[in-house]
Design a protein around this nucleic acid. Sequence first.
DNA 1: CCTCATAATGAAAATGATTTTCATTATGGT
DNA 2: ACCATAATGAAAATCATTTTCATTATGAGG
Lengths: 148, 148
Amino acid sequence: MKTDSSTTYEWIKQLQTCGYRVTAARQTIVELLVSSTHALSPIEIYDLGRKEYPALGLVTVYRTLERLDELGLIQRVHMPDGCHRYLRATQGHQHLLLCTCCGQVEMFEGDDLSKLTQRVEDTTGYHIQDHWLQLFGLCPRCTSQSRQ
Amino acid sequence: MKTDSSTTYEWIKQLQTCGYRVTAARQTIVELLVSSTHALSPIEIYDLGRKEYPALGLVTVYRTLERLDELGLIQRVHMPDGCHRYLRATQGHQHLLLCTCCGQVEMFEGDDLSKLTQRVEDTTGYHIQDHWLQLFGLCPRCTSQSRQ
DNA sequence: CCTCATAATGAAAATGATTTTCATTATGGT
DNA sequence: ACCATAATGAAAATCATTTTCATTATGAGG
Ligand SMILES: [Mn+2]
Ligand SMILES: [Mn+2]
Ligand SMILES: [Zn+2]
Ligand SMILES: [Zn+2]
């Protein structure tokens, strides 16, 4: 089982391997993303990050998110309001399930959209490159709370 | 076959039925949305609309889109950059297929995500309420152009 | 048709997220 | 230690969207 700190170390090492420098700002941001159970907005990362490293700038948060996204270490979550949040990427093809109440994010895999994709290609003549699939619902905790 | 103008009339009538007033701004915006083959951004609607009706304000575009969305006459398209576009809603449950090159939007139906949804509910304990599914690809025209 | 309450509008300002600019600082190869 | 330059943070700019507010236009009722 991978601990958060070993993952943090690996991410930093990957940044280094790609020629990026290791900085306090990046370490702070990486630690937050590695250990968070829900998708973080840039502002959240900024606010949480400054508790650890008060000099952190919001712009650096955006720039670091860009790098980590390039390296495939995090993934973007599209929120209904159009803003973005970011989440540790997992290995393999996965999709997201968001709690509409508390924001908790769960991943799931095993969608097989190939039949659907094939049929849509045949019907429309499009050449399909990518897909977005996100599910929305209530997490177990919010479900039981709303039932009262 | 429904003509654009009869659809425009119906939308206006629906607004009226719901107690909204019929105005030049709303007629202009409705006409554009009814006849467009691709998803329009608020700014596009504003720019196109002012050709018809120069006094049109961008705020009114936003407000009218809100109304039409409430009535289920249009649907929101989530773009990769986080901005929104709007498109005539179709009857029944449909999804979008966007050309990543020219922005053309195609609708398709017949996704059956119920098995997937059920499995994810069983696995995660979430109570799933909704889903987003969008496909991205190249439309036939853009496919042939990019092949040269 | 005329009146009038008020829904709707557009201009301007405010907001909030994200990006750009730029002078300063910190990293890491030498 | 030195130094080229990658990275940073502050401030300003940009862009989409929302709020505020004074003015205008709609449509119900007379
Ligand atoms: Mn998938
Ligand atoms: Mn569906
Ligand atoms: Zn929840
Ligand atoms: Zn195209």
